[in-house]
């Protein structure tokens, strides 16, 4: 459940198409410290494939992915 993940910052990416979600999330994650978590909310279905690829390459970790009513939420821990 999401309750057990403490979110330090929410990054709203709703309505943004490629490449903005990963561009904005890469900026957003720099606003928190290593070990802190951001919640990225997107409406881009491509993000389901893109976010894991971005996280792997940039060295961050997706703790959890939530999907509901056209919204996709990623809980990402800053690792690098």
């Amino acid at each position: 459940m999401t309750e057990d993940i403490k979110v330090d910052k929410v990054v709203d990416l709703k309505g943004m198409p490629c490449p903005m979600p990963i561009v904005k999330v890469s900026k957003g994650i720099k606003d928190v410290e290593v070990g802190q978590v951001i919640e990225a909310i997107t409406t881009d279905p491509g993000a389901l494939a893109d976010f894991p690829a971005w996280a792997k390459t940039s060295g961050n970790e997706i703790l959890k992915t939530d999907q509901q009513e056209g919204l996709i939420k990623f809980y990402i821990e800053r690792k690098a």
Partner: peptide, 12 residues
Amino acid sequence: LIIATGAAAMGM
């Protein structure tokens, strides 16, 4: 430009 900015976002 999408590839370039995307790559920069990936830390490249």
